[in-house]
């Protein structure tokens, strides 16, 4: 099976969900014209990133009677979609979230489990922490989603791997930093290094969709990527400009790679569990 994948690295208007929705629908049309099966938008693609006190006013629920999601759900009849948004639960906690939509239905919502609250980041002040890392079934097989800081930690991708995800969909609103004499920003090099490493270590597809544009002095660098189960780069979007990056995931590659390199077969989860129990119960 082959999936036509598209990664949309868009700019957003900060706090203007209506304008961002219009851009999503425009990109969805473009991707449809290219016979895309799955289109992945970046983190908080419907809202913008440094929301601060805008959080409550931009929150939406991924349900059919929501004025924003009714359009996205309808669009997902033609191709599967991942969008970034602020999710509000029934008790009014706000999460940085990604929704996977397919066939006009919501398939899965991931709430960001690691909220960076250091340096230039202040997410923990404004958002609730997600408390689950789950793979889920799609028409392309089992998939997992993570959001930015989630994959700066090794455990969420590892958990998705063990939970059966063969395709990991990462999304970010990654502010560029660490400009020096190297070809790329330090933040871009770090993210590309770890996403490639996850694809290699987990012999899985790992794709990353990162936004572009500016919010005050912060600059988002784009550079969408897709890696195959050998850790080879399948596609690389441009830096610093809006684009859709198209590539094809040949799912048969999972079988070929894992026949050669049975890291998943040999993973000793019981050993991990035993040692984690020991480490966590030590005190």
């Amino acid at each position: 099976m082959k999936i036509n994948l598209a990664l949309a690295q868009i700019n957003t208007k900060l706090g203007d969900v209506e304008a961002n929705l219009a851009k999503h629908l425009e990109y969805i049309e473009k991707a449809k014209a290219e016979k895309t099966d799955l289109l992945v938008f970046p983190e908080l693609s419907l809202t913008g990133y440094v929301l601060q006190d805008l959080v409550a006013s931009v929150a939406h629920k991924p349900v059919e009677d929501d004025p924003v999601f009714k359009h996205i759900l309808a669009a997902s009849r033609d191709l599967d979609l991942v969008v970034g948004f602020v999710d509000e639960d029934s008790r009014h906690r706000f999460y940085i979230a990604s929704a996977y939509l397919s066939g006009g239905k919501l398939v899965h919502v991931h709430h960001k489990v690691y909220l960076p609250t250091y340096g230039l980041f202040d997410e923990g002040r404004f958002f609730a922490w997600g408390d689950a890392v789950r793979a889920f079934d799609t028409r392309f097989g089992r998939v997992g989603m993570l959001i930015c800081e989630d994959f700066w930690h090794a455990s969420p991708p590892y958990l998705l791997w063990l939970d059966g995800a063969d395709i990991m969909l990462f999304s970010s609103a990654s502010p560029g930093r660490g400009l020096n004499d190297k070809e790329k920003l330090e933040s871009a090099r770090w993210v590309e290094r770890v996403t490639k490493a996850y694809a290699s270590m987990f012999t899985s597809f790992v794709v990353h969709s990162n936004r572009v544009g500016y919010e005050d002095g912060l600059h988002f660098w784009g550079g969408a990527t897709a890696f195959d189960p050998n850790g080879e780069e399948l596609a690389h979007g441009p830096y610093n400009e809006e684009a859709i990056t198209y590539t094809q995931l040949d799912l048969n590659q999972l079988r070929r790679t894992r026949a050669r390199l049975p890291l998943l077969r040999d993973e000793r989860t019981a050993l991990v569990q035993k040692e984690l129990d020991r480490i966590l119960n030590r005190g």
């Binding site: 208007k13 900060l14 706090g15 203007d16 440094v50 601060q52 006190d53 805008l54 500016y214 919010e215 005050d216």
Partner: peptide
């Protein structure tokens, strides 16, 4: 202190 918006609010 607790009225926090970027300058780029809404744009």
């Amino acid at each position: 202190y607790d009225f926090l918006y970027l300058r780029d609010w809404g744009t």
